[in-house]
Amino acid sequence: MNNNVIDQSKDITILELLDRVLNKGVILTGDIVISVADIDLVYLGVKLMLSSVETMEQLKKGKTIKES
């Protein structure tokens, strides 16, 4: 397996992981802190999801993350 493929796999895994941690799982209401350090977590999640899609597009075009 070449280094590009390993890099791509790692990036996909990290993006998938962040998407799950920030956007999935059990949701607490009431005492939950949605906003952390004055940044809206939902906004961060959407941003991550968008970059995730962009990264996938770049991978499809045969670029590595580092090249883009």
Partner: peptide, 24 residues
């Protein structure tokens, strides 16, 4: 976020669990 996920993953190897969303 990765530390948080790492804890959940390690626990999931041994126990059935429901992961919480980050920031709970």
């Amino acid at each position: 976020a990765i530390t948080f996920a790492g804890v959940i993953e390690a626990l999931s190897q041994e126990f059935t669990l429901l992961p919480m969303r980050f920031g709970s």
